[in-house]
Nucleic acid binder design. Structure first.
Length: 474
RNA sequence: GCCGGUGUAGUUCAAUGGUAGAACAGAGGACUCAUAAGCCUCAAACAAUGGUCCGAUUCCAUUCACCGGCACCA
């Protein structure tokens, strides 16, 4: 529990070469829940997301499609920005694009501040003449290109700038050791610690502009552009108008408990490289990195070719916004991989929302309405730091226990029976049920903001709302 | 190959050195305020082997299975 008044949280910035993925939608919604929670707890919150738009993949893809690269990223970035409305993300969220001028300038300034750890050296790349492409070790099979196994891989040399990550091994280990919760969950913390303990190699952080022009120009060397991840990471502070706006930066980064959500494929970039970069630039480290698992389908990664992709748009179209938020937050493991199929989503929707919350609202308000309940008591929710360990799933389970309890209470106290003989007793019971329901709605205000409001106002007006979560096949 | 983790009902998870809890799915029942929802009841599990212990699902070892990591993939 912290007593600071400001709070910073960001998602990773998705790379715009593909359609928005359900995994990113989940990350965004989770960050949104935390942001709303902090805000409603009285903190001043800077909530950030955006898009990562440089690099060769995008450059090539735009070329393939025959569109200007800038146009390509403009269009694709919009699709991600659309998620804000689609998923009812806090409208005050900041959206940084790595092609924004302020970001480009910040990335260049950041580079300059890291200069003592940047050096130019010869970089041996592995090149497949057949593909006419540079290959990484992981793309090769026993030293040969998978697509052209008969051709020899050529080694070519080019000059690149390198970041001396090796200078930061001890400092990173110190950071981890003095902050055992720096990475959540523990398994990821251990993983990154082990990775750094094995020793760090320096990293190439630039590309020759003549080969790949789509990047931020390296300061004082116009022949090079920054390698994507170097500039992309700086977005977490360029969004704060660093370096121009030192006040903002101080408020939200130095003193704002900078918290980052990321997928498990981003562990290294966020918790090692970015931290080393911050150290190099003489800036404070992040406070905490939360690592999400992946969403798979039938044991496999979602991919177009497998035809098992479930998109955020489809989810909202089928279930509605708040139900989508529910589905992403309740049943998907907070930290581990989770398998998701339409069948399971339907089950989750039916049991938790149609049969659970929706039905409860309906039965309580019908009685409240018919029996003439006049007032409901205000709630006094016990306040503690629900999301300290970022286990939103646990919080959700707590709320749904209350829903279950309230259902059981109706059965146990049978106000619908008692009403026939004694109105007053029945009315008291139902008023009590309304209070329980109000509390449930109150707890849902970060999770399902619209539903929370609808339930609250229905209770205030004692008017039964429209069917909140219609049965899917009805 | 090396390092780390996990293996509990059909599924997803929980707890515990001494009768293994729940949710969803399944079967049956009594009700009726409700979205054929809710409630009650039932059925259903500790990967295998060995060890420590009065006693292990829990601790240790081995085997098997699965997952993650072992760097230029945003």
């Amino acid at each position: 529990m912290t007593h600071k008044k400001s709070f910073y949280i960001t998602t990773t910035l998705p790379y715009v070469n593909a359609e928005p993925h359900i995994g990113f939608a989940m990350e965004l919604v989770r960050a949104d829940v935390i942001a709303r929670y902090k805000k409603l707890s009285g903190q001043e919150v800077f909530f950030n997301t955006g898009t990562d738009e440089h690099g060769s993949k995008i450059f090539k893809k735009a070329q393939e499609e025959g569109i200007e690269t800038q146009k390509f990223v403009d269009d694709h970035s919009e699709k991600f920005r659309d998620l804000i409305k689609l998923l009812n993300i806090d409208p005050e969220v900041h959206f940084i694009r790595t092609t924004d001028q302020k970001h480009i300038k910040a990335a260049q300034e950041f580079w300059k501040r890291c200069e003592k750890d940047i050096e130019k050296k010869l970089y041996k790349i592995k090149y497949c003449v057949g593909c006419e492409l540079e290959k990484t070790d992981s793309e090769l099979e026993s030293g040969h290109c998978v697509l052209h196994p008969l051709l020899e891989i050529e080694e070519r040399e080019e000059e690149n700038y390198f970041f001396k990550l090796s200078n930061y091994q001890d400092k990173l280990l110190n950071l981890y050791k003095s902050n055992p919760n720096f990475v959540i969950p523990d398994s990821r913390y251990n993983e990154i610690k082990a990775f750094v303990e094995r020793g760090l190699e320096d990293f190439s952080i630039s590309r020759l502009k003549s080969k790949m022009p789509w990047g931020v120009e390296v300061p004082s060397d116009s022949e090079h552009v920054m390698y994507v991840w170097f500039d992309a990471l700086v977005s977490y502070i360029s969004t704060l108008d660093w370096p121009q706006n030192e006040d903002n930066f101080t408020k939200f980064w130095r003193e704002g408990i900078p918290t980052q959500y990321a997928g498990k494929d981003n562990l290294r970039q966020q918790s090692a490289m970015w931290q080393a970069m911050l150290m190099s630039a003489g800036l404070p480290n992040s406070y905490q990195i939360i690592i999400n698992g992946f969403i798979n389908s039938r044991g496999q990664k979602m991919s177009k070719s497998l035809g098992n992709v479930i998109s955020p748009n489809e989810l909202v179209e089928k279930y509605g916004v708040d139900a989508t938020r529910y589905l992403l937050l309740r049943h998907i493991n907070s930290f581990e991989d989770t398998d998701v199929t339409w069948e399971r989503l339907d089950e989750w929707y039916e049991s938790g929302l149609a049969n659970g919350l929706g039905n409860l609202v309906s039965r309580v308000l019908t009685m409240a309405n018919n029996y003439g309940v006049s007032t409901i008591d205000s709630v006094h929710t016990i306040h503690y730091d629900y999301f300290k360990d970022f286990d939103i799933q646990k919080y959700m389970n707590h709320v749904w226990e209350l829903i279950k309890k309230t259902d059981k209470k109706i059965q146990d106290e049978e106000p619908y029976k008692k009403y026939k003989t004694n109105h007053e007793i029945a009315v008291n019971i139902v008023a009590d049920l309304c209070t329980n329901l109000y509390e449930i709605a109150h707890l849902l205000r970060y999770i399902m903001p619209k539903t929370s409001e609808v339930i609250k106002s229905s209770l205030e007006d004692l008017k039964k709302p429209e069917n909140l979560f219609p049965r899917i096949n009805a």
